Amino acid sequence: MSQTIGNLKRQIEGATDLQSVVRTMKAMAASEIVQFESSVRALADYSRTVELALSVCLRAADVKNLQQKPLPVGVQPRVAAIVFGSDQGLVGQFNTVICDEAIGALSSVPGEQMIWSVGERVHACLADTDSQLVGGFHVPSTVKAIAPLVGEILIEYERQTENHPATQLFVFHNRPKAGALYEPVSQRLLPLDETWRRQRSEMPWPTKNLPQVLGNDLQTMRKLTGEYLFVSMFRACAESLASENASRLAAMQRADKNIEELLETLTSSFHRQRQANIDEELFDVVSGFEALQR
């Protein structure tokens, strides 16, 4: 009986220590969510400025020079994709969901495919399929590390597609969703098709005075297009990180609840065993006293 009580006591102590670790991870995940969601909100104003500048350039630029040139005869189209996942576990189906979204969307796009993964977990998930992985990147742990990562991705993309200017570029990531943890989303960033140009050129200017582009409008537009790609990648990465930490926070909340229930069960069992042990000792004392009386 004493051994059973000792085992229960050790289990309670172990569960208590584990609960403290889980609650620490909950606090860290909640803090990370606030950090990345704040960066997305802060990026909205800059993104709006870039899109307004693009709208001015599109109004002033020669449409013929912006149209995509057809591929030469015999040249196969190419498709590039960036899939944002996680480097760490305790995120449930986070990587599986975005992996399935990417595979399903790319299956209907013709052409030679190149896929870069951001995160070791999603890289392993994509490796289990027939995806044509050409590289991978580590997931940034802070907001400050997102910008260098995006720069590396764009440099690698330009290097791989230097001789294929018409390569399509897709981005896949999880986005936080109201009423749910996250949802998988995809976006085609390149090439900038007619629909994209028309939507940007029709954006209303916030004032009555429409600005003019000084110098070479096409060169200015190329610079702004680079900023548009950077902002889009940065937002995708930040939203993916916010979704990852939201998934981890939900997992830690479930673990905390399970540990709390386990502690209640262990504590109840400990008290019952301890009371049974006391009752047994009292019974022995009373039996001995009665024997002495006889």
Rank of each mutant, 00 (worst) to 15 (best):
R10M: 05
Q11T: 00
Q11M: 07
E13C: 08
T16K: 06
V21H: 06
M25A: 12
M28T: 09
S38E: 13
S39E: 12
A42W: 10
D45E: 03
R48L: 05
L54F: 06
L58Q: 03
D62E: 04
P77A: 03
R78K: 13
V79Y: 06
V83K: 08
S86Y: 02
D87N: 03
G89F: 15
L90S: 11
Q93P: 04
Q93E: 04
N95Y: 05
S107I: 01
P110G: 07
V118E: 03
V122E: 00
V122I: 06
H123M: 11
D128F: 05
P140Q: 04
V143G: 00
P148Y: 00
P148K: 00
I153V: 12
L154K: 01
L154C: 02
E158Y: 09
T161V: 11
N163M: 12
P165R: 09
A166K: 00
P176A: 12
Y182Q: 12
R188W: 01
W196E: 14
R200L: 15
P204A: 01
N209S: 14
V213L: 00
V213G: 00
Q219D: 11
M221C: 03
K223S: 13
K223N: 11
T225Q: 15
G226Q: 11
E227I: 08
Y228E: 15
F230W: 07
C237H: 05
C237T: 11
E239A: 12
L249A: 05
R254D: 05
E261Q: 04
T267L: 04
S268N: 04
A276R: 11
E281W: 14
E281G: 12
F283P: 07
V285G: 04
A291M: 11
A291E: 10
